[in-house]
């Protein structure tokens, strides 16, 4: 499997601030990869280094094996970094035409892309009068315009209305699946990442603190919740340090799914009267908050065991 974006011990400092700290990652080509993290985690710095906007203090980054800023790599990449800005005197159509010329893609389908991001009605208006959402849409069209192999999107739906968000999410998934475009997406919206991404990396203080498939990251966090009609003491004795009380009539068991039948059998043999057993899944937000050392609150989703 080829690697779309690779960072090796990447460090970037701005004065005393360490935006990236010996950061290493290898993002494979194909699918949608989510980059999560709080403000200042290093997401935008990573993208800016990968695209040649910023030089690393130490370490290296490679796009499809080439150094950032290398023309062969740039030809394969489309990007939208932070809130896009445009020369105010250009119309939306002129902006895309100019960017297509810049990339050497003279035959780019400017009109088609304006239609796909629902900007046909504003195609010949100067971008200076565009709302944030319209600028985001135009930025997405610009990112996908030259049929890149990799698209890097930094907060692609911020400032958009709910309908626009749905539309853009669908577009990203469609492009990734149908046209084989690799998408690397940074977002604060965990729901968006969960819906769109196949794999995610969670960044904190310039380092990767968790990485894996969305299902993989959340699966390990599921706990079995057993509601009992009998006193909890016997059940807690069986579970040992893998169990804890959850209210007056239930226990939470930290056990792998495969062990559930054996544990339930042991509990019944020890005299526990089990009324209900359900898996309490921790969703991506729970994993995210836990990884960052914050307490997951109402972030759980329950499912029958």
């Amino acid at each position: 499997m080829s690697i779309a974006l690779e960072a090796d011990r990447l460090t970037k400092t701005y004065g005393a601030v360490r935006a990236l700290d010996e950061f290493s990652i290898a993002i494979p080509a194909g699918g949608v990869f989510g980059v999560l993290g709080p403000n200042g985690a290093g997401k935008s710095t990573l993208f800016r280094i990968a695209l040649g906007l910023v030089r690393p203090t130490s370490g290296s980054a490679r796009l499809f094996g080439a150094a950032p800023g290398d023309i062969t790599a740039l030809r394969k990449v489309g990007a939208m970094i932070e809130t896009p800005r445009y020369p105010p005197y250009l119309t939306a159509r002129d902006t895309l035409t100019m960017l297509a010329l810049e990339s050497g893609a003279k035959t780019a389908d400017v009109g088609g892309w304006l239609e796909r991001v629902s900007l046909t009605h504003a195609a010949d208006r100067a971008t200076s009068g565009f709302s944030v959402g319209m600028k985001q849409r135009l930025g997405l069209a610009a990112a996908f315009l030259t049929k890149p192999e990799l698209v890097i999107l930094d907060e692609p739906t911020s400032g958009m209305d709910p309908a626009g968000i749905q539309e853009i999410r669908a577009l990203i998934v469609d492009l990734a699946k149908r046209e084989g475009v690799t998408v690397i997406l940074a977002s604060h919206q965990l729901d968006e990442v969960k819906r769109v991404c196949d794999r995610v990396a969670i960044l904190s203080r310039g380092k990767v603190v968790a990485e894996g498939g969305v299902a993989e990251l959340t699966a390990g966090e599921a706990r079995l919740r057993l509601t009992l009609a009998s006193p909890l003491a016997s059940a807690l004795a069986v579970l040992g340090d893998r169990g804890e009380a959850d209210g007056a009539d239930a226990v939470l068991a930290d056990i792998p799914r495969a062990e559930a039948p054996a544990v339930i059998r042991a509990l019944v043999e020890a005299g526990a009267e089990i009324v209900e057993a359900r898996w309490r899944e921790v969703d991506l937000e729970g994993v995210y908050l836990k990884t960052l050392g914050q307490t997951p609150t109402a972030t759980t989703v329950e499912g029958a065991a």
Binding site: L53, I71, L74, G78, E82, P87, E102
Partner: peptide
Amino acid sequence: AGDYRWETWRLLTPRNTRQN
């Protein structure tokens, strides 16, 4: 220097080399 004023280097730099 217009691209500094309009903050549009981020739009152009990923499309061609800095030198070009």
